[in-house]
Design a binder for these strands. Structure first.
Lengths: 324, 324
DNA sequence: TTGTAAGCGTTATCAC
DNA sequence: GTGATAACGCTTACAA
């Protein structure tokens, strides 16, 4: 690997001049500039990011700390982050905590060794005191993605609003009663109820059940479809996997989808598109989330100092397919 | 961030002594060692990997160049690579070519900037001359994963053997005729045929069709099940996605799975386990592939110089579920 | 066993 | 405009 000093020797200039030419910020005589650039190109010069970083300047490295890269959602997020970072000239150093708190803690240290310019994290427990502590101890900016973190910049999906969105869609499609499958305290359900309420749906027609296993869900859905047989049911599952189980059970119960009920999933995973019928689903705007997170992080990198905490809530989008 | 020099000042020793203590290779007086270690711990000292790398020593960085991190298979691979690398004290710098040749080329350059100790790659075109050229131009060891690369160390799955494995399984389960869905020149099919042949299956009962779209596949399968109605059919699809389409079509054709036919997928993706019936599938030993690749790369890092090219072919495993 | 000195490849601060 | 020179934090001789 050729260095600036070597290029300097070859082109009969000083090494700092080579630096000036290659960085292109300071004025340099055109003939020198040309000579140096030609030489650099010829030898396929590559900046030594280590030396640059050591010197105090930026490393152009972004630490990315995820919980589970093998999860399709985070894999897509990682992809988008990498794309967006690349656009801005940053490379990604990847850490995957696998939901191990100790590992996450270790990574918070390891990442410092590489003097990354900033960290983009999906913490395991975004509101734990220890994690907040680690972040404060760091001397680099941190942005949290996919979750709301108190006291730290973050970008996340508005689950509550997503529920409302689903409510509007199901109502528009003429469903007359509504079932949420998931925890009753889920923000999605809160928003779902509120949305239905706003649009004048009687609370009697809104209910929720939890999903534990197929047999229990089958029982529950069977019961649900015994009553109020005439009203088409709009079913909102807390994620696509759950929704897929629902589709399977509906098939076993001989409840035709869209005729007697509609099903909406959450996450809009690829797998949903392979179902029959294709699963309608709420999609998280992953690429926007990645872009906003990366850009905010870069903003923080380029504008050090304390700024008010920035929390960006993104709106969900509905990907309507064949199941609703 | 505290430095060795600062620790040296605080503990009244020289900076190289601090280095000696922290690295633990050279002999240092116990009382000094203790003092230094205590100080380092107290201030949560972290090595400056940039300085270490710059000095000529290793960066403990591994460049990982993938084609598509959002693909579940590669996502899992990335996870395993990260795990294995971490175990050995390496961190991962991730690049995702998205199957763009120019991007891959750019990344081959960018990665040099960070002076990674080695590169673990899934190249887009493992046998292209240009790529081989880029690799030769590099001064760091490269190991290719998931594909066989001529002239470069690589770990990959034995597709041919996998086909043979499937043949044995289907025969054992009593299927009497066999259908491969995919390209006829696929190594899986070659192995599949050979396996069946070895076990005495008449070539008349072996065939293959390609998969282009659902309608065409439905026609083809319909035709296939019209003839030789008595023989149970063992169907081997070139990947899980295809197998899932097959399952769907079999349902539409009212061909009961396991009674009249069995279906085997390839990749053993998570999605297959959510099917009904659960999809039997050939699983690539991802974690072993990752481990072998990482370990080979580390071997190359620690033993520079020319060694004979190392090509490791791994055997597939069959994950038998409910569809066969 | 420990300290001194040099050097890795940059950028930044000076002079000229 | 351009060239010395110092500095970043570390490892590796070499000296004591």
């Amino acid at each position: 690997m050729i260095t600036m000093a070597e290029i300097a020797k070859l082109t009969h200039v000083s090494q700092p001049t080579v630096s000036r030419v290659l960085n292109g910020n300071t004025k340099v005589a055109p003939e020198i500039s040309e000579r140096v650039l030609a030489c650099a190109r010829e030898h396929n010069y590559q900046l030594n990011a280590l030396a640059k970083g050591l010197q105090g300047s930026k490393t152009q490295l972004m630490g990315v700390l995820l919980t589970d890269i093998s999860n399709g959602f985070f894999a897509e997020l990682a992809k988008q982050i990498e794309m967006e970072a690349r656009k801005k000239g940053y490379s990604i150093i990847l850490f995957n905590s696998r939901y191990h708190l100790e590992l996450e803690q270790e990574y918070m240290n390891v990442v410092r060794r590489y003097h990354v310019d900033g960290i983009l994290a999906v913490p395991i427990r975004e509101n734990s005191a220890e994690w907040a502590e680690s972040v404060k101890g760091l001397d680099v900016p941190v942005v949290v993605a996919t979750r709301h973190a108190k006291g730290i910049d973050s970008v996340y999906l508005d689950h509550d609003g997503a529920g409302e969105l689903v409510a509007g869609h199901l109502l528009e499609r003429g469903y007359g009663r509504f079932l949420f499958i998931g925890r009753s305290y889920d923000a999605k359900y809160i928003g779902f109820r509120r949305g239905l309420d706003k649009l004048g749906v009687d609370g009697r027609f809104i209910s929720s059940i939890e999903f534990h296993n197929d047999e229990q869900l089958l029982q529950d859905l069977d019961g649900y479809f015994q009553m109020d047989g005439k009203l088409r049911a709009g079913i909102f599952a807390y994620n696509d996997i759950c929704a897929i189980h629902v589709l399977d059970i509906l098939r076993r119960l001989n409840v035709p989808v869209t005729e007697r009920c509609g099903v909406i999933g959450f996450d809009n995973t690829e797998i949903g598109a392979y179902m029959n019928p294709k699963l309608s689903s709420v999609s998280q705007p992953i690429s926007r989330m990645a872009a906003e997170a990366v850009n905010r992080l870069i903003y923080r990198i380029e504008n050090p100092g304390t700024h008010p905490v920035w929390n960006r809530s993104l709106q969900a989008e509905l990907s309507v397919k064949d199941s609703s």
